[in-house]
Each structure stands twice: as structure tokens, then as C-alpha cells.
Design a binder for these strands. Structure first.
Length: 288
DNA sequence: AAGTCGGGGCT
DNA sequence: AGCCCAGACTT
């Protein structure tokens, strides 16, 4: 893993959350927001939204004072809109439990809404410089190949954390670089489909490359089709509510021509259950 | 351990 | 027409 340091210094992408100005302006809150947005949304899609979000709500306290409707609206088309509500809830929790300061302790971070193993450690490491293993889907693939000689990682588990922890340098700053470098390598070189092993700094020591890049038969659990799914219906309803906001949409005007009316109603009910929509006498709207 | 949850871009 | 994406939550 040692070659990653030099490679990262030379080749790392210039991303907003890696710039000193970003940390100076938004601190740990900026890192927290960026990591929320990056949960399953590609880097290139997050970038255009991040600055607008942080300019509007530059602190947890500002975010906590916003309405859920404004939060869902600002989240726009980033996907998985429950994350917007969780981010808002996390901001409230930061104000209530930590005086408005994003906590540094991993367990305190894990206790916040919408924060799991990845995000908690990403904040502790990239915002505060502490020494923890940060393992995302990119890192898991790099470890699977370079260390275990497999084509694809297995399902996420705590083993990944232990494996990465064992590879971290003793110095926290160097450990942070390795964490970021492993993610960067997986995102740009050691990609899922067509890895560029010819440009990989770990090529000499990679177990998978040494074995001739075998197909180790690790089936990735594939996602159901989006077309025709409940998720698509939810997305369509929410898009309608965003367009109408702050006005409510009469229930009879909510996707009247949707192919499957039971699916439509299921989508409405589940959005209400999630707190992403609200129904009253005037109809359906974003949550007040 | 398996299901659910967006949406866009690339192959 | 799939596959993939700086995951987390619920059951």
C-alpha cells in the first residue's frame, strides 16, 4: 500500500472537499454534508449541489432551523431523498447533543441519524484528522483485488474495517492519506468494470493481477430494475410535489395517469410514512 | 443476511 | 438493457 502515497500526491482529483478553503469555510459540517451527499451518489453529481447547500446552511444550527420542506426541495434530484431528512435530523441532534459542533468521536457520530460505519469514520478522519479505517465501495474493491486476489469484494462487513485498519500507518495524517488514496484508486484506476492495471501504482504487489485477473465468480447482488418500480413511482410523486411547492397538490391530481394506480397509492403512503410528504385538506405536499 | 430506497451516466 | 455509484436503515 505504500506506493499509494506518492501516486495520490500526483494523481488525485481536485475535489471541493479536498481543498483547504473548503475546510476553512465549512469545517467538519462541510465534510459531514459532503459525505451524506456522497452516499450512493457519484462524485460528479454531488459537486454542483454542495456549494449551494453549504452557502444556504453554513452550520448545523442553520440547517436545524430549516423546515423539512426546504431541505427536501434543496436536495433536488440527488436521489435517496430520505438522506435529506436524515441530514436535517442529524443537524438537530448535533445542536441538541453537542452544542452545534459536529462531534469528533466515532461512537457519537454513529449515534446521529443517517450516519453509519463509512460516514462516521470519514468525518472523524477527513474533518478531524483522527486515525480510523474509512472503507467505502472503492476501498473494498481495492482490498479484494490487491490483498485477497479476488475480482470483486464480497458483501460489506466489519472484516473490511479490520483489514483496512491493519494496513494503516501509525501516523494519523499518513493514515488519512492512505484512506483517501485507496478510495481514489478504486474510483479512477481499480474500477469495477474495466480496471486500468497498466496505470496502477499497486500493480507490482497486486494478488489479483499476479494471478492473471481471474474471474473469481463473486456475484454482486444486483438491484431490481428501476423502470416500473415503486421507487420510480415515489420519485415521480416527489418531483411533482417539489414543482408545486409551497402549494399542495389535490390528491386527485397526483399522477392520475400512472399505469398502476395501486403502485401510485403505495408510493404516496410510503412517502408520508417516511416523512417526505404530508396530506391535509388541501391535498399532498412537502412536509411542513 | 436480505430488501428497500433515486436517478443519471456509461457500456 | 444492465451495471454502478465515497451507504444506511429496517426486518
Amino acid at each position: 500500500m505504500t506506493p499509494l502515497h506518492g501516486w495520490y500526491a500526483e494523481e488525485a482529483r481536485d475535489l471541493p472537499w479536498r481543498r483547504p478553503e473548503f475546510h476553512a469555510a465549512f469545517g467538519a459540517w462541510g465534510v459531514l454534508v459532503s459525505e451524506f451527499m456522497l452516499q450512493q451518489t457519484p462524485v460528479t453529481r454531488v459537486i454542483p449541489h454542495l456549494d449551494a447547500w453549504l452557502t444556504r446552511w453554513p452550520t448545523p444550527r442553520a440547517m436545524a432551523a430549516a423546515s423539512p420542506a426546504d431541505v427536501v426541495q434543496q436536495w433536488a434530484n440527488l436521489g435517496y431523498p430520505r438522506r435529506a431528512l436524515w441530514l436535517h435530523r442529524a443537524a438537530v441532534e448535533v445542536v441538541e447533543r453537542h452544542g452545534g459542533v459536529v462531534p469528533r468521536d466515532v461512537d457519537a457520530l454513529l449515534a446521529l441519524s443517517g450516519i453509519g460505519d463509512y460516514t462516521a469514520r470519514a468525518v472523524a478522519v477527513f474533518a478531524y484528522g483522527d486515525r480510523h479505517p474509512v472503507v467505502d465501495t472503492n476501498t473494498r474493491r481495492v482490498l479484494a483485488r490487491a490483498v485477497e486476489g479476488r475480482a470483486q469484494p464480497g458483501s460489506p462487513s466489519r472484516r473490511d474495517l479490520a483489514l483496512m485498519a491493519a494496513l494503516l500507518p501509525a501516523d494519523p495524517a499518513e493514515a488519512a492519506v492512505l484512506n483517501a488514496a485507496a478510495m481514489e484508486l478504486g474510483a479512477t484506476i481499480c474500477t469495477s468494470r474495466a480496471p486500468r492495471c497498466d496505470r496502477c501504482p499497486l500493480a507490482d504487489g497486486c494478488a489479483w493481477l499476479a494471478a492473471g485477473r481471474p474471474d473469481t465468480g463473486d456475484e454482486r447482488r444486483r438491484q431490481a430494475a428501476y423502470e416500473g418500480s415503486d421507487r420510480q413511482a415515489r420519485g415521480a410523486v416527489l418531483r411533482l410535489l417539489r414543482a408545486a411547492a409551497p402549494a399542495a397538490v389535490p390528491l386527485t391530481a397526483v399522477l392520475p395517469d400512472w399505469p398502476d394506480v395501486r403502485q401510485r397509492d403505495r408510493a404516496i403512503d410510503s412517502l408520508i410514512a417516511d416523512g417526505l410528504a404530508e396530506a391535509d385538506g388541501e391535498g399532498l405536499s412537502l412536509p411542513r
